[in-house]
């Protein structure tokens, strides 16, 4: 009751005061007060709006910093999925690099030494870019390592990877893969190219392409993966790469292109692999700038003399 009386008393008092002073008000004063109170209100509202903008900016900065930190952590985790060192004395030497387009990569390469002395190496390119591709990549990496470690043939590995990818993405995503198994004693390379860019093989002055003969992984529930074989002579160099390399600069309508890559590799093929890799990356950067449109991966393999005693 008291709460309801208060405004009544206030308004009654105001009414009485207004009545008493009804002849004492000048219009100019009303204008002055209006300007004073209106101006102060406008200044207050402006201050509030600016404060709000500042708050939102700060919040979005924090959010961005948090996402960046998460992305950096994801990149660290992903780096651990790539081989830290390559097996030596198995008749092959390697050099590999992966440059993600958006912080983390959907590309992947791996080199594994199996307990029976065989070597397995692969390059994988997941469709799409960014976080979703990186998650699929880590899943494929885990399955590939288990399957390869279990001693499955290249055809079986690709078949099971295909089934795995198809099941987890309902056929909505695919991956191209070049999977190879190297028998050092027989110098025999058995490989499956499932929709991947044809690796370039430099052998005795000639350049060959190990063209894809099988569909990419994940597109169809049941696919056949054809295994090809090739004996590698010492000195042969293979360049496995993802389309991010040859398509660098595509956003500016000037692809780096396969012919440019072939010419570059032909020129430097006799140099150490790390040096060749350096030349290729330098050229692509000069061609397309520092930012790439797609993840870029390059795995260089050189066949060397193999001593059976090393086994």
């Amino acid at each position: 009751m008291r709460g309801k009386l208060q405004p009544v008393v206030v308004f009654l008092g105001a009414g009485i005061l207004l009545y008493l002073g009804r002849h004492l008000l000048r219009e100019s004063e009303l204008v002055t007060w209006g300007l004073t109170f209106g101006g102060t209100t406008a200044a207050g509202l402006l201050g509030m709006a600016l404060y709000r903008v500042q708050l939102e900016l700060r919040a979005s900065r924090q959010e961005l910093a948090m996402k960046q930190a998460e992305l950096n952590f994801a990149l660290q985790v992903q780096r651990a999925l790539f081989p830290r060192e390559f097996p030596a004395d198995r008749g092959l030497e390697f050099s590999g690099v992966c440059v993600p387009a958006r912080g983390i990569s959907g590309d992947y390469y791996d080199v594994l030494l199996l307990p029976d002395g065989r070597l397995v190496f692969a390059i994988v390119d997941i469709s799409g870019k960014g976080i979703s591709a990186a998650i699929l990549m880590s899943s494929l990496q885990a399955v590939l390592r288990i399957l390869a470690g279990a001693g499955h043939s290249p055809g079986e590995v690709c078949s099971k990877l295909n089934l795995h990818l198809n099941q987890i993405t309902d056929g909505g995503r695919f991956a191209t893969i070049f999977y190879a198994e190297w028998n050092p004693a027989a110098r025999l390379l058995r490989y499956v190219n499932a929709g991947h860019n044809a690796p370039l093989l430099f052998e005795e002055g000639a350049v060959l392409q190990l063209a894809p003969c099988s569909p990419p992984l994940g597109l169809f529930l049941e696919s056949e993966f054809r295994v090809s074989e090739r004996v590698l002579k010492p000195g042969s160099v293979m360049a496995l790469y993802s389309d991010g390399l040859t398509e660098a600069g595509i956003d500016h309508d000037r692809e780096f292109g396969e012919s440019r890559l072939t010419a570059l590799l032909t020129e430097h093929v006799c140099k150490p692999l790390a040096e060749i890799q350096h030349h290729v990356l330098d050229s692509v950067h000069q061609w397309a700038g520092l930012e790439f449109e797609d993840d870029l991966t390059l795995l260089l393999v050189r066949a060397t003399e193999f001593q059976k005693e090393a086994l």
Partner: peptide, 29 residues
Amino acid sequence: SHLTVILVFQSLMAAGMACLLLLMLRWLV
């Protein structure tokens, strides 16, 4: 005049301004 009309008019203006500012504050911040 200061203790009657001016007091009432300015109080009402000030109260209106304060309520509007509080409303906007609650919305914006």
